[in-house]
Structures are given as structure tokens and as C-alpha cells.
């Protein structure tokens, strides 16, 4: 317990770092996921921008990336991270890699959420002369907003998980804190403190997500 009290400043820093990583990856990964999901949805057979080659490539890419265990993906994506953000280490590289993995994971969820929009509504929009871009922003996204918010809440938990794993390969945050001060120093109380903080964070976000989704669905 004394050890934990001594470590409070580090715990604080780690919490802030986790929030920072998760916020940025939620933003970049979320945008990427939206792009991938829209791409999958719009190019599938019978959709408004039906394009079989594009759909096949996207679909295979998503299926290729998603099953890779994240800890291996972290290592495998290092050359790409160096290319894009200039470094393969530290929080910038971690944020890039998590965003990339999240974009593909979220892409599938976005695609499934968009599929809940009744095709008839899109047909109605087409029947009054709306083009694809307008349909995306005035029909697809607003109509699927409730499920999309829940999808993003779901991916938030995955991001916290990935950010903790990233602690293992040099990323900061609560994962790193738990490993360094708890696990490696045989101090389970410190580990549990980190776990507890993560649980609180996830719960808060789940409440927020549910609340927003309810607002969007007007239930």
C-alpha cells in the first residue's frame, strides 16, 4: 500500500498518458474506420457506388489485418510506423499503430451499422435526386447514428486494451505502469490499482456512449 502511495505521481502521469493515447487513437482510428466502413458499404453489390474490385480488395484487407494478434501487429507494423511518423518507438508510433489496427476493426463495425439502414430510405433519397455524397451525410450517417455511437463505445474499450498492450513494447500509460511497478516488482496492489482505474474509465465511457446513443435514437 505504501508503495502505491509513493507511486501516485507516476500513476497520475500514466493515467493522463492513457487518456491521451486513447483520445488520439479514437479520433484517427475512428475516422479511418468510418472511411473503411463506408468504403465497404458503398461498394458492395447493390449499393449506390457498387464496385466489385474495390470491395474485394477492402474486404480482403480487413480480413487480413483483423485476425493478427495486436502484440504481433505492433512489431510487424514498425517499419510502416517509421515511414509515416518517423519513429518506430514511443507514443507517436504506438498511436499510429493502434489507429491503424482500430481503423480495420472499426471498419467492419461501421459497415454492419450502416447495413441496418433500410435500403428503402436510400431509394427514397435517390428518388428525389440526391447524389451519393448527399446520401452519405444526410441519410446514411444520421440514420445509423445510434448504432454507430454504440460501435464507437465498443471500440473505445478495445483501444484501452490495445494501449495497455502497447505498454509492453515501450508505450506509456496504465498498461506500462502496471507492468513496470506492479507485475515486475511483485506488487499486486499496484497492478490492481491500474486495473481499477481502467475499469472506471471504461465504465464511464460506456455510460456516456449509452446515453448519447439513447439521445440519438430518442428512446
Amino acid at each position: 500500500m505504501d508503495a502505491l502511495i509513493e507511486l501516485l505521481p507516476e500513476l497520475w502521469t500514466a493515467s493522463v498518458e492513457t487518456l491521451y493515447i486513447v483520445a488520439l487513437t479514437l479520433f484517427f482510428g475512428g475516422l479511418g474506420g468510418l472511411a473503411v466502413g463506408l468504403g465497404l458499404y458503398l461498394t458492395r453489390a447493390g449499393s449506390i457506388l457498387e464496385n466489385r474490385p474495390v470491395f474485394l480488395v477492402l474486404n480482403v484487407l480487413v480480413n487480413f489485418v483483423r485476425p493478427i494478434p495486436f502484440i504481433i501487429f505492433l512489431a510487424a507494423a514498425q517499419p510502416l510506423a517509421r515511414l509515416v511518423v518517423g519513429t518506430a518507438l514511443g507514443n507517436s508510433a504506438i498511436i499510429f499503430t493502434i489507429s491503424l489496427a482500430a481503423a480495420f476493426g472499426m471498419g467492419r463495425i461501421v459497415e454492419q451499422n450502416l447495413l441496418t439502414v433500410t435500403p428503402g430510405v436510400i431509394e427514397a433519397a435517390r428518388s428525389v435526386g440526391a447524389g451519393p455524397i448527399r446520401i452519405i451525410f444526410t441519410v446514411l450517417l444520421p440514420e445509423a447514428l445510434g448504432p454507430l455511437i454504440l460501435g464507437y463505445t465498443f471500440i473505445f474499450v478495445a483501444l484501452v486494451d490495445m494501449s495497455a498492450v502497447a505498454g509492453y513494447v515501450g508505450g506509456g500509460g496504465l498498461g506500462n505502469f502496471a507492468l513496470q511497478y506492479g507485475y515486475r516488482q511483485f506488487n499486486p496492489i499496484v497492478t490492481w490499482a491500474a486495473v481499477l482505474l481502467i475499469i472506471v474509465l471504461v465504465q464511464l465511457m460506456q455510460f456516456l456512449g449509452n446515453w448519447l446513443a439513447r439521445k440519438a435514437l430518442r428512446r
Binding site: T118, G120, A124
Partner: peptide, 15 residues
């Protein structure tokens, strides 16, 4: 299409 209105069995209104 702006000159042709259409109504549907399932109404297809934006919820």
C-alpha cells in the same frame, strides 16, 4: 427525378 415524386409501401421516411 426532381420532377417525379415517388411514394412507397414502407413509406421510407427518415427516422
Amino acid at each position: 427525378r426532381l420532377g417525379i415524386g415517388m411514394i412507397f409501401q414502407q413509406f421510407n421516411l427518415l427516422n
